[in-house]
Amino acid sequence: MRRQLPVLGQPQPERADAARNRQKIIECAARMVADRGADQLSLDEVAREACVGVGTVYRRFGDRAGLVYALIDERERCFQEAFMTGPPPVGPGAEPAERIRAFLAALVDRIVDQLDLFLLLETASPKARFSGPYGVHHRHLATLLAQARPGSRAGFLADALLAPVNARLISYQRDERGLGIEEIKAGFDELTRALLTPRQAPRAPSRGRPEAGP
């Protein structure tokens, strides 16, 4: 049985007609994004394209962020399955520090894969921005950080590491700074290594031999 991951927060079963309408709406929205770009996504236009009432779209998805979550749902579930149950180093079986580095690199690829939709999601309210996939990513990363650095403020560190892994910054680094995706991932790897490398206590200054007297 396929694991139901907490992406949309709507795991309840649907009636057959509701499921058909939902799929029709998602397919129309996906076509509109492919043809016009994610920033032109409008729930009213999606309703017209899907030949359903506007109220149906709003009741089913709530707002544009809810529809975006639905559009990224399938690939997000595959991504979550990879780091929850997949092979190492992204999945279980590798050391926590190695899994953290692999997870962040995979997350960069995940965002680039649907960059326009993640850009749109980041314009939503903070509640929408930090729910859905972000909450799952944060819990996973905080768990690994607690294992890699016992006693650390793992929740805060997880937020700090996830903060720069966002569509706006990745888009800016790629388009304005001219960085390739592999360079961006290498930067995150360097940042993570710096965070996880144990600090060495400063060595006491060595005392030279006393100078001989005259």
Score class of each variant (00 low, 15 high):
8 L>G: 13
11 P>F: 07
11 P>L: 06
14 E>V: 13
15 R>E: 15
16 A>H: 11
22 R>L: 15
28 C>I: 04
33 V>T: 02
35 D>P: 03
37 G>R: 14
38 A>G: 14
39 D>T: 14
40 Q>W: 11
42 S>K: 03
43 L>W: 02
45 E>P: 13
45 E>W: 14
45 E>K: 13
46 V>N: 01
51 C>Q: 09
52 V>G: 04
53 G>T: 06
53 G>Y: 04
53 G>P: 00
56 T>S: 01
58 Y>F: 14
63 D>T: 14
63 D>M: 12
64 R>I: 07
68 V>N: 01
71 L>S: 07
71 L>Q: 06
72 I>V: 13
72 I>L: 06
73 D>P: 10
74 E>W: 11
77 R>L: 09
79 F>C: 03
81 E>T: 12
82 A>M: 07
83 F>S: 10
85 T>R: 03
88 P>T: 04
88 P>V: 03
89 P>C: 14
90 V>Y: 00
91 G>Y: 01
91 G>W: 04
100 I>D: 00
104 L>S: 01
105 A>S: 00
106 A>R: 06
107 L>Q: 07
110 R>S: 04
110 R>L: 02
113 D>K: 04
118 F>S: 03
120 L>P: 03
121 L>C: 12
123 T>D: 06
123 T>Q: 14
124 A>Q: 12
124 A>T: 09
127 K>W: 13
135 G>A: 08
135 G>M: 04
146 A>V: 10
149 R>F: 11
149 R>M: 11
152 S>H: 07
